[in-house]
């Protein structure tokens, strides 16, 4: 198996460093932990790794209430209780009431899959620690039935985090880490081109000029990101606005700037 397995897709432009990190993680069969500003395409990465390698993708979107065990399996006691009272199906067979979660499905799959664990930092502080063994050994046991699930082929695990909580060291030790940097102008041009292939060079230049100008505004609370830039360009084109001719103020500012203070700040700077 060659090392250079992932090299981006037609609709997803990955920097060299990111490609390298993905390939290292795949080769070492370790989870890849991806961090970066919101809107830099962390979640999209998993989709595109799956597409590039031709593997199915399983998603596990973590919420503040998610428990680690739910990712493996859930024992639906309420359904079993319901069946026992109203006499539907075979209550004796507990396996009927075991539902595998995304991680459980990834490990039980008979072929290689890509598993996305999205926004792992949203969950409780101890959440990553509860997954250590499963991610390490790629196996788990269903206590209720005694069934042992062992992965046939180690899944490619991509974990995203927004840096809201510090992840435990023991967990970090087992991951390969990459920080997606905010794209520079050249890379950004290529990224925008993917979404708007027929955009004129001049228009793109102007848009990027305004965009990076905005991002450079000091004290901005939330800086606009790639996905917002793409939305903004979309809005500009739909409305047929020519950036070169618009004087004073940025059209559709609301697609780029999302808080009152920032709008005020940008307004003040535009006047000055």
């Amino acid at each position: 198996m060659s090392f250079d397995q992932f090299s981006g897709t037609a609709s997803y432009i990955a920097s060299d460093e990111l490609r390298h990190a993905v390939n290292v993680a795949v080769a070492l069969a370790r989870p890849l932990l991806v961090r970066g500003e919101p809107g830099t395409g962390k979640t999209l990465l998993a989709e595109n790794v799956a597409r590039a390698l031709g593997l199915p993708l399983l998603r596990w979107h973590v919420k503040s209430t998610t428990k680690a065990k739910e990712g493996l399996y859930v024992y639906d006691t309420v359904a079993r209780l319901h069946d026992s009272r109203f006499g539907d199906g075979d209550v004796k067979d507990i396996a009927r009431y075991i539902r595998l979660g995304p991680l459980g499905l990834a490990l039980a799959a008979d072929h290689r899959v890509v598993l996305l664990i999205d926004e792992i930092d949203k969950a409780d502080l101890e959440f990553p620690n509860d997954l250590l063994l499963e991610l390490d050994a790629m196996r788990f046991r269903i206590d209720e039935t005694g069934r042992e699930v062992v992965a046939q082929e180690r899944p490619i695990v991509i974990i995203t985090s927004n840096n809201e909580k510090e992840l435990p060291d023991a967990f970090l030790r087992r991951c390969v880490f990459h920080y997606i940097e905010f794209p520079g102008r050249e890379l950004m041009q290529r990224i925008v081109r993917v979404h708007h292939p027929d955009l004129e060079d001049k228009v793109l230049d102007q848009a990027l000029e305004v965009f990076y100008g905005l991002r450079a505004t000091p004290k901005l609370r939330k800086r606009p990101t790639t996905s917002e830039l793409i939305d903004w360009i979309c809005a500009l084109r739909k409305a047929g606005v020519d950036l070169g001719r618009v004087g004073g103020g940025i059209p559709f500012l609301g697609t780029l700037i999302k808080t009152e203070q920032d709008v005020e700040l940008v307004g003040k700077r535009a006047k000055a």
């Binding site: 390298h20 070492l28 991951c175 990459h178 920080y179």
Partner: peptide, 27 residues
């Protein structure tokens, strides 16, 4: 293990990115 697999591309640049991805977990 990664070096043995040749993941650093036999270059210092490759080694820099490889070592950083494997050893450093926080920006």
């Amino acid at each position: 293990e990664a070096l043995a697999l040749g993941l650093h591309d036999s270059s210092l640049d490759g080694f820099y990115h490889l070592a950083r991805a494997v050893c450093v977990k926080d920006i």
